[in-house]
Amino acid sequence: MNLLEIERLSLEFRTRGGTVRALEDVSLAVGKGETLGVVGESGSGKSVLSFAVMGISDAAATVTNGAVRFEGLDLLGDGRSALDELRGAEMSMIFQNPRVALNPIRMVGKQIADVLSRHAGVTRDQAKTRAVEMLAKVRIPDPERRARAYPFEMSGGMCQRVMIALALACSPKLLIADEPTTGLDVTTQAAIMDLIGDLARESRMSTILITHDLALAAERCDRIAVMHAGHVVEVATTAELFAHPRHPYTAKLIATTPRPGVGLAELEPVPGALPDLRGDLPSCRYSARCERRQEECADGPLARLIDPTNAHLVACRRPL
């Protein structure tokens, strides 16, 4: 059984300017111990999806359809009440810009202890000790002293380690990492990704890596899902996706990604911009940007071509 299953999830934001259909018919699954990459331009709905899974969506967001199942428990239905207990314990999340994602006026050790005493059923003193252990585990030097530091006294990379310690304090089964390296310098980025990978392997934790950086996903993920304008347009194993991209958008994305042997000048951006998600949209939201567009792309149900041998999934009527 998969650890997490997202089934035909649709989500809207009701705003003054109109209803934004931020997610439509999104289906994804994450197996135990697997690392799934979710890639796409900013605004494609990656973060909205992860917030919906965690149940921390904005107040203006409404789930209009679909289900999210964690170990078979329906988090949007019967399991809703259990979500409070699951968050931070069984599934947790780390964010971009770690320096502002931590409480600026609380010692980092205390912030970790808050999570432990909420979920792990330990006393405040035990929680403090375990918080220091967690800081050591994410390879922060001098953890005793660092536990008493405030976020503003630490570098961005250190803060992201603290975020990881916070997320992994209760040994969750699922970690959602939302652009975990954005805003960090390049060497720190690699170290942070290594740390996440190592800790995930140690405890057979499943990871969803959300990023706009296809190269990063290629390096770290078992499978990759490509999102565009609130749709999942293609899902495949990393090797398959790069070898045989079937969706025109995926192909364009790969063409924009720097890689060895290709000069920067040869990289071309994906033409056009994400469509406005308010009002009427064609059934394929990429069709306006697509060079292979035909009349039929605008309406009717979206085609799902499934290659059963390697679970390659594409939402396109005229795949490559």
Binding site: I56, S92, P104, R118
Partner: peptide
């Protein structure tokens, strides 16, 4: 703010989020 979102994502109780994290700031 981002840190309140973090606190919620970590499943801290409503009271802790509201008082220790949000109100104090």
């Amino acid at each position: 703010s981002d840190f309140v979102r973090t606190a919620r994502a970590n499943g801290l109780s409503r009271g802790t989020v509201l008082v220790t994290y949000a109100l104090r700031n």
